[in-house]
Simulated scan of single mutants.
Amino acid sequence: MTNRHGDADERSRTRSPSKFFVPILAGATLRDRILACMGALVGIGLTGVLCAIGYGRGFDVPLLVAPMGASAVLLFAVPASPLAQPWSIIGGNTISALVGIAVSRLIHDPVVATGVAVGLAIAAMSLARCLHPPGGAAALTAVLGGPAVASAGFMFAFVPVAVNCIVLVALGWLFHRLSRHTYPHRHVPVVVNPHGTSDIPAQMRLGFREEDVDGALEDLGETFDIDREDLNRLLHRVELRSLECSHGPFRVSDIMSRDVICIDENADVPAARKLLLDHEVRSLPVLDEADRLIGSLGLRELSQPGIRIRDLMSKARTATPDTPASQLIEPLTDGRTHAVTVVDDGRRVIGIVTQTDLLASVLRSPERPALNS
């Protein structure tokens, strides 16, 4: 038997000379790091230029405050972080600057003022739900910024700090949109019971639950730079991959039915209902005149008013023959999808995987070879 831990230790010793060059961020890739560098270059450069143009006062005023550099690191390198969201950047820096200015006017000893300013800035950002690490630097800048900041007074928090933040966030949004990254970060929709009953959704009845995640975080007693919903989603993905490994490398082609009952988009409702009942299936792939998949039809769709199938069909969930079977667990347990249609590159139907097919594959012994239909 192979000692996996021994192999891991050996690999660790082999890689030790270059361990300092391994990204410390989970999921980080070389492409992401290069994009982050390009984004920071463009974002900070354009922020300075646009603010200079907007102020119209030359370079005798601070056009770009130092905390923007740290904000750019978060915005472009870890855009999914809760600390890098628009309100965190704008609110965190602006509120912290206001706190720093207020403290500098009340406490004239710079040593004491700097500590008080940063501490109160953290408290203020926490209360306003906009915790942002560069906010500490914004508070320090307000205290130690010298005559230019002192003469600006509380307006320093808005011009240039808030203006810098707004411009930087806008440029970050545009950059991530062009680079096909999502920003602001979108949370995964909360899973709900589609049947309108008090039961929790089927996919959440086994394994860990949200309260387990909360309990584990409380047990560890640490604060992590990841959104709670993202952590929950990540752990569920780990479960699915673990399930795939424990049941072997199943592919959709191993478990799909190949003799698929389909219906033409121009067929009528009685014909569709007859096919569903005669073959005891819960959904039918709908084909166009070129035999390409264009939708799915079940009893739920047939309950709606309409004459032709093409007017009643819903969007079909699809997969390819090489798709890992474990990836169908999520769609087939959402309470609405009863089957996933398997298509080729031309969207022609070559098979179908039902909830029964998937359940049979999950329950089979790992030592037993997969059966091909």
Rank of each mutant, 00 (worst) to 15 (best):
G91I: 06
R186Y: 01
L171R: 06
A28M: 11
A202H: 11
G69Q: 15
I34Q: 03
V190T: 15
G146K: 11
I166H: 04
R129P: 06
V252D: 01
S257N: 10
P201Y: 02
D345K: 05
G146T: 12
A113G: 08
V49W: 15
D9Q: 15
V22F: 08
C245L: 14
D259I: 04
V99L: 08
V252W: 00
D278R: 11
G115V: 07
V112I: 15
S303W: 07
E367V: 12
E222W: 01
S303P: 03
V42N: 06
D32G: 10
V191M: 11
P285R: 05
C165K: 05
G69S: 13
I53W: 14
V163H: 02
W87Y: 12
S96F: 05
D60E: 15
L174C: 14
A72P: 02
A150E: 09
E301M: 03
P79Y: 04
T197A: 07
E229M: 12
H279I: 01
L25R: 14
L83H: 10
L243W: 02
D259Q: 11
R209L: 08
L74A: 13
L174F: 13
T2Q: 11
D322I: 10
T182N: 13
I200W: 04
T223C: 04
I53E: 10
I44W: 02
G207Q: 12
V65W: 00
V61H: 07
M204Q: 14
V99I: 15
V22A: 14
G54L: 15
R348F: 03
I352W: 00
V269T: 13
L287R: 00
L277Q: 14
V161I: 13
R347K: 09
R205L: 10
E222I: 07
A162D: 05
I226A: 12
R368G: 01
P110F: 10
P17D: 06
Q327C: 07
H176L: 09
P133Q: 10
V116C: 07
E265F: 08
I263G: 02
A148L: 13
P285Y: 02
A128Y: 03
S246I: 10
S365G: 03
E265C: 08
G153N: 08
A121F: 01
G69E: 15
P324W: 11
T333F: 04
A339N: 01
S71L: 03
A102Q: 08
R292V: 10
H181C: 12
V65P: 00
V22T: 15
M256D: 01
P86W: 12
T47C: 10
V188R: 15
T197I: 09
A267W: 00
G39N: 04
G91F: 06
R273T: 14
R233S: 13
T197S: 14
A157R: 00
R228N: 01
D259S: 12
M313E: 03
L240N: 00
R105D: 13
A123I: 15
E222R: 09
G43L: 07
A84M: 06
L83S: 05
G115S: 09
A84L: 08
H132G: 08
L243C: 04
G69Y: 15
R13F: 06
T341Q: 03
C130Y: 03
E330V: 11
V73I: 14
Q203V: 10
